[in-house]
Simulated assay, not measured.
Amino acid sequence: MVGNPVIDRPHQATLGRSVTLFRTFLTEQTDPDGFYSALAADSVRQLAAHTPLSGRTVLDVGGGPGYFSDAFRAAGAVYLGLDPDVGELSARGEYGENMIRASGTELPVRSGSVDVCYSSNVLEHVSEPWVMLDEMCRVTKPGGTVFASFTPWYSPWGGHETAPWHFFGGHYARRRYFRKLGKQPKNKFGESLFPVSVGAALRWAKATPLADFVAGYPRYHPSWAMWIVRIPGLREIASWNLVLVLRKR
């Protein structure tokens, strides 16, 4: 019997994994297929540590061109993805199967209809991140899992392609990028890139009446570095990417 290539190897937050992911990140521009496929497989293993996926309905908010679709289906999930950006949806050609164009802050999905609502690196790209998280909770079944990760503004990659100049302000970083390269960045501060903090995200997760807070931790770090999220200030810079896990009430 052929094993499942995505989840047969359980998620382990080791230093070796962190190093491998970092090396993979360096290939994002030169080998996007390899980069996003590897990230998707790792992300599905990470999610599978919180909830079973085989036979479960997964809604991926910000699914893009379909790399996560492949990984979720390999794990046995019933997958539905959405993204508001036509360019992202068609980055690999035609729209992927079960992919629709829609906004994360107005999900066209019935309340309490999915087992898992998932989002990877989208919150920092919407002007109302807490509305999007509320929507993710709304569409999830009672007892289901909400899993969202994002890049905090003050992390080294918070400004995305304008980093590290975002530390001097998002508008400054955007102007500098245009001045140096003669074009606007893909992620435009104030339009498609917004400052979201670790502290604000954790406060929302612990206060929302829609779901119980399960966990908040650095997405790419080894397990012995998870304590970072408990230290205000440090966590904004050193978390790099924050995961929120909630259980729908």
Rank of each mutant, 00 (worst) to 15 (best):
S119Q: 02
S119F: 06
S119K: 02
S120Q: 13
N121V: 14
V122R: 07
V122S: 09
L123D: 11
E124G: 09
H125F: 06
H125P: 14
S127M: 04
S127P: 11
S127I: 08
E128R: 13
E128N: 14
E128V: 03
P129K: 08
W130D: 08
V131T: 15
V131N: 12
M132H: 03
M132K: 01
L133Y: 03
L133A: 12
D134S: 11
E135M: 00
E135R: 07
M136E: 00
R138C: 06
K141Q: 08
K141A: 14
P142H: 03
P142C: 05
G143S: 01
T145Y: 05
T145G: 09
S149A: 11
T151P: 10
P152H: 08
Y154K: 15
S155R: 10
P156K: 12
P156W: 06
W157F: 15
G158W: 00
G159D: 05
T162M: 14
T162G: 02
T162I: 10
A163V: 07
A163W: 02
P164C: 05
P164E: 00
H166R: 08
H166I: 12
F168S: 12
G169H: 02
G169L: 10
G170M: 08
A173V: 06
A173P: 11
R174Q: 12
R174L: 12
R176Y: 13
F178T: 14
K180V: 15
K180N: 10
L181W: 14
L181V: 01
G182L: 03
K183Q: 14
K183I: 13
Q184F: 06
Q184W: 06
P185A: 06
P185Y: 03
P185R: 05
P185Q: 05
K186F: 06
K186Y: 05
N187S: 13
K188N: 11
G190I: 03
E191V: 13
E191H: 07
E191T: 14
E191Y: 07
